[in-house]
């Protein structure tokens, strides 16, 4: 199985000259810094700092202008040099869409620790299980999550299976069965 290179990390694809879109403007009005990323198939994509995430999403969710009150999914993504937590925001009432990303550079993650992203679960229950799943499979720790426990894998599983450097323990699927066929 060949390793596929991460797409988002070629320097040419990180143009600095992208101007802020409507949601970027909205966030700046409320004092939250954001960086515009290349659109995700026509949907505005912004990058925010981890510490601003909760404030930004609260604004976007509650404000009359935006009403992005439908958290579709929280996805953990491993890029070549960073971990991303991706939030897809929709609206129950209008057609607006937004993708919010939080990046944690791999170099900023201490050895043997997990990258940390603030949790939304306390004020937005929809994020609860998605964050648990992202923690389980991608190994992103959501700080402040009320019950950050593995959700799809068994509770005593080791490692985070969707990471690129994950090696599956040979016997783990079979409860350390010596007669395992694997």
């Amino acid at each position: 199985m060949t390793e596929t290179p991460a797409p988002g990390n070629k320097p040419a694809e990180e143009p600095k000259e992208l101007t802020a879109g409507p949601f970027g403007e909205f966030l700046r009005e409320h004092g939250i810094a954001s960086t515009r990323l290349p659109d995700s198939t026509g949907v505005e994509t912004v990058l925010v700092e981890g510490k601003d995430l909760e404030a930004a999403l609260k604004r976007l969710r509650n404000s009359q202008e935006t009403e992005l009150n439908y958290l579709v999914a929280v996805s953990g993504v491993e890029q070549a040099d960073s971990f991303e937590s991706v939030y897809h925001l929709w609206s129950y009432t209008n057609l607006k869409e937004l993708v919010v990303k939080v990046r944690v550079a791999k170099s900023a993650v201490p050895e043997g620790k997990l990258p940390v992203v603030p949790s939304l679960a306390n004020f937005w229950p929809a994020a609860n299980w998605h964050e648990r799943e992202s923690y389980d499979l991608m190994g992103i720790r959501y700080s402040g999550h009320p019950y950050l426990r593995r959700i799809l894998n068994p509770w005593d599983w080791e490692g985070h299976p969707l990471r690129r450097d994950y090696k599956q323990p040979v016997d783990s699927l079979n409860d350390k069965n010596p007669h395992s066929m694997r």
């Binding site: 596929t4 290179p5 991460a6 797409p7 988002g8 995700s40 198939t41 949907v43 579709v72 999914a73 996805s75 993504v77 491993e78 991706v86 897809h88 993708v99």
Partner: peptide, 28 residues
């Protein structure tokens, strides 16, 4: 490129977030 697409399934919004790197496999 990357994209998120959803359709209305009998149970609700079924969506798929795909990151592709142009190869014959998806990246995420």
């Amino acid at each position: 490129g990357e994209g998120f697409a959803a359709v209305e399934s009998p149970r609700g919004t079924i969506g798929c977030y795909v990151i592709s790197n142009g190869s014959d496999k998806a990246y995420r």
